[in-house]
Design a protein around this nucleic acid. Structure first.
Lengths: 164, 164
DNA sequence: ATATGTGCAAATCTTTTGCAAATTC
DNA sequence: GAATTTGCAAAAGATTTGCACATAT
């Protein structure tokens, strides 16, 4: 079971003085002159609007409800496209349910995903200390950072209390 | 506080005043009363001593050189055992070469892995800001953290300069 | 002696690919 | 019309599983 405690809705709140948003995938694609097909539009809008993290199989299932012709291969190819353009992030969510990958539209602030091994809840968390760490890493390592993935696994507050 | 940058081989140096070490897997297993077989001893010692990050197939290949009877299934079962006991960490290394997972004996300080998309170099990086972020996350989320995975992808200094 | 671990071979799950037909610009 | 994308079906890659036999305590 995947329970989402704070996702986009709450994530879009504020982080200090800053607002966390998800830039429009469609616009980004257009700006980069990417050829748009009906299926791409469909898949992209599903990813953009999904309230939960989608894996390839789920994305396919949802897409098929609108266009039964959509094929697995197209889903994977579209994911690869978006990933290579840096428009979506790939997550494992600590492999709580198998080895699949999950995807979400990139936010203007990186955030981490915290998964509860007990109940499967996923919490999203953005903080300025994360930003500071990124700066720190970039400066000291000399790397030009393109993607960051921070995932945490443990026991959520409720499960921790229940266990003890 | 000082922060160090190190590749696998250099990891084990120092982090400020602290020494980064990899506790003995064998001892940990013994302490927990885990039944030890010849193959477990072999696999565990390979993981413990490996200077690079191992994926299941590579671990199998190395193990077979010592004991040709070792089977893939045993490798996966041993990895699962160690992972569930929290004795090894699982990494993706940004999927630079396929979807496989890599494993390493846990260190007493969490560290992040930075991968160069261009040349494939992997840099390991431990810092006090990482520790601070972990504290921050634990406190704010109420989670009891068990595993942390921070992976970064980008261009290393050399590739960045070469590209421009 | 009993519980646990292992090899084998087959199955499962996720992702990728070659190619002819369809679509976009 | 040329270049790109798609469906299909097959392949590939990574990991898991059932079961009879072997091993550890």
């Amino acid at each position: 079971m995947t329970v989402i405690i704070a996702t986009e809705s709450q994530l879009g709140r504020s982080k200090g003085n800053h607002i966390i948003t998800r830039p429009s995938l469609m616009e980004e694609l257009h700006e980069r002159g990417v050829r748009m097909t009906a299926q791409r539009r469909l898949l992209v809008s599903i990813i953009q609007d999904s309230p939960r993290h989608l894996d390839a199989a789920t994305l396919l299932k949802i897409a098929k409800q609108k266009d039964s012709a959509v094929d697995r291969a197209t889903v994977y190819r579209t994911i690869a496209l978006l990933k290579n353009l840096g428009l979506i992030d790939e997550l494992d969510l600590m492999h709580l349910e198998g080895e699949k990958h999950y995807y979400e539209a990139k936010t203007n602030w990186d955030h981490c995903h915290i998964a509860c091994f007990q109940c499967g809840a996923i919490l999203e968390y953005a903080s300025s200390s994360f930003e500071r760490l990124k700066q720190d890493i970039a400066k000291r390592s000399g790397f030009q950072i393109r993607v960051v993935r921070l995932e945490v696994g443990g026991l959520c507050e409720r499960c921790r209390k229940r266990a003890s």
